[in-house]
């Protein structure tokens, strides 16, 4: 198994590196390729089973897009071929058309038909989340200065508690993230795979692994407790600065 991590030197803001640590612990012989922002991504000329990109600062989004733009077609080709791509936190926004920041329009990769509104001088959105994907409960956190809307090829997670892609969306049925073939992009940030061992098993199986996890019992124990808490009727999903 070969996993390429894009720009780990700055796409690592909220504990996102935990995802790759969990994969490596679960699949010790996995080859992890860390590609810095000044290098040509490995996927351009080589085969990978998975590409991962994590949360970054607002300014670094522009650097990341500028580095990936020349290889956009190759990236799309790999997605069409079923390569697993996971994007956590605001890395999701890179796949859209643009980010609107006040009067400025910042072009993104324009691979999917959605766009982002950034509101950096306003209150930061912090929330907990529980949802469902293919019968699996998905849990996590959001912490962002932006919100996106548009046409998400196939929504990733149905929201059971918390907020969807557009945090102002008041619809009864809401969705979080973008899914297209084996591309999974979500605002849920940080150690998404550690928090969601069933989903980790799912993507490991997509890559031909048997899906066994490191410290599976302990990971499932923490996960089940979190699911139970988030399914409690008294749960308030909006978080203040102390959680």
């Amino acid at each position: 198994m070969r996993v390429e991590v894009l720009f780990p030197e700055f796409c690592n803001l909220f504990g996102d590196t935990g995802n790759i640590r969990f994969i490596k612990a679960s699949v010790p012989d996995a080859e992890i390729i860390n590609t810095d922002n000044r290098s040509v991504p490995y996927f351009v000329n080589g085969d990978v089973d998975m590409i991962y990109i994590g949360s970054m600062s607002e300014r670094k989004q522009e650097i990341a897009v500028s580095r990936l733009l020349p290889y956009k077609d190759r990236l799309m080709e790999l997605i069409e071929n079923g390569v697993v791509v996971l994007a956590t936190g605001n890395a999701l926004e890179l796949f859209g058309k643009h980010i609107k920041d006040k009067d400025e329009i910042i072009p993104m990769l324009d691979m999917f038909d959605f766009s982002t509104d950034r509101y950096i001088q306003e209150i930061r959105h912090n929330s907990m989340f529980i949802g469902e994907f293919e019968g699996m409960k998905i849990v996590g956190y959001k912490s962002q200065f932006s919100s996106c809307s548009g046409n998400f090829a196939e929504p990733f997670i149905k929201v059971n508690g918390g907020y969807g892609n557009d945090v102002d969306d008041k619809s009864e049925v809401k969705y979080e993230g973008l899914r297209y073939k084996n591309l999974f992009a979500t605002y849920l940030l940080g150690p998404f795979l550690v928090l969601n061992p069933p989903f980790t098993k799912y993507i490991l199986r997509l890559m031909g692994h048997d899906g066994s996890l490191a410290f599976e019992e302990e990971a499932m124990d923490a996960y089940n407790e979190r699911v139970e808490c988030l399914e409690d009727e008294s749960t308030v999903f909006w978080m203040d600065e102390h959680g």
Binding site: G15, G18, C229, S234, G243
Partner: peptide, 18 residues
């Protein structure tokens, strides 16, 4: 942990992976 008063309440643990 920051929240001790309500065991049902969640708080982010993302930071522990940093």
């Amino acid at each position: 942990d920051e929240i001790f008063d309500n065991p049902k309440k969640q708080e982010t643990v993302a930071w522990i992976y940093d």
